[in-house]
């Protein structure tokens, strides 16, 4: 074979490999493009349309959905007045998701550290204990939590039987219940990435810290926590994002009274029959998530650079 023939054969082989790769990637990429990404485009379009009388949309351009997010139109004279109701739901959701993130971090860090410092054979078992709730139906876990914290639930009955309290603590259908529910739901999401980071921890550095007369708190805050930073960041993102869009927890434990963004969006596609407004709210939620992910990407990038 001459050189030209060889390079032609090479090019042919390369083309074949590329085609094979495209063929293999095709189905997965196509399914997700069509059923997960294209719908987001539809949502953008819907958010600029007019609600249909029986749900759905009518094809008339309108920015009413975005105006409605902050303002309320007077039905008589059509003037706009500031209406903070929806903004409050967004702020409450951000607050609850942030609180759940901090709460799971405070509980999850010691748990992950404890597991990571166990002998290797025991770690698998502990990890299994954390993973199991991770893969258990969130609806059922939330229902189980509801059974526990109801007025006539397990906790109140136990406390009353022990004569610690006389009247049941009314936790259900409050922000506290939603907060507890979010922590309960997303705790495994925090522990698993933290563990992945802490497991790789080089304890010679901890020893070096103690050798240099660092107190236990100093070692924890100046040696261990910085080394576990990738895990802390990943855990926080994994709790904050689903927490922000939570639907089941506020639905069951907030009793439909303590709304979060997720419920508000769902209602627009259900009883409120205002698909454009629901679409707009979903896009505002998406924007929040994208901001969080960008901050995460930057932080993760900085980490990677710092530890080259």
């Amino acid at each position: 074979m001459s050189g030209a023939q060889l390079s032609a054969a090479h090019a042919e082989a390369g083309r074949r490999a590329r085609n094979a790769r495209l063929g293999l990637l095709g189905p997965a990429v196509l399914i997700i493009l069509l059923i997960s990404i294209l719908p987001l485009g539809i949502t953008v379009v819907y958010s600029f349309l007019t609600p249909g009388t029986y749900g759905g949309v009518t094809w008339e351009f309108s920015t009413a959905a975005y105006v409605q997010f902050l303002f309320e139109e007077d039905i008589f004279d059509g003037t706009l007045a500031f209406n903070p109701a929806y903004l409050q739901i967004f702020l409450r959701s951000i607050g609850l998701a942030f609180g759940a993130m901090i709460g799971t971090l405070i509980l999850g860090f010691p748990t992950a550290y404890f597991i990571a410092t166990k002998p290797r054979q025991q770690r698998t078992f502990w990890l299994f204990l954390i993973t199991l709730p991770f893969w258990t139906n969130i609806l059922i876990r939330t229902y189980a939590m509801l059974l526990i914290i109801r007025d006539e639930g397990f906790i109140n009955l136990t406390l009353m039987n022990l004569r610690i309290i006389n009247h049941p603590l009314s936790i259900l259908y409050t922000d506290t219940a939603v907060f507890i529910g979010l922590i309960y739901t997303y705790l495994p999401f925090m522990v698993l990435p933290l563990y992945a980071s802490l497991e790789k921890l080089d304890f010679r550095l901890v020893e070096a810290g103690y050798d240099l007369y660092a107190s236990r708190w100093k070692v924890l805050s100046h040696v261990i926590a910085p080394l576990a930073k990738p895990g802390i960041i990943a855990g926080c993102v994994l709790v904050f994002i689903p927490g922000l869009g939570a639907y089941i927890t506020p639905e069951l434990l907030g009793g439909g009274k303590k709304l979060m963004i997720g419920n508000m969006i769902a209602i627009q596609f259900g009883s409120s029959r205002n698909w454009p407004f629901g679409s707009a709210a979903a896009l505002i939620l998406m924007a929040l998530v994208v901001i969080v992910l960008l901050v995460y990407a930057r932080a993760a990038g900085r980490e990677a650079k710092a530890h080259g």
């Binding site: 997700i32 997960s36 819907y46 963004i261 939620l285």
Partner: peptide, 24 residues
């Protein structure tokens, strides 16, 4: 890009995927 597309369903809140899919 291929990874990003395949992992996309994990990146956005389920409620957004849900109403977007319903719309489509």
């Amino acid at each position: 890009l291929a990874y990003a597309i395949i992992n996309q369903p994990l990146m956005i809140p389920e409620i957004v995927t849900a109403i977007a899919t319903l719309s489509l």
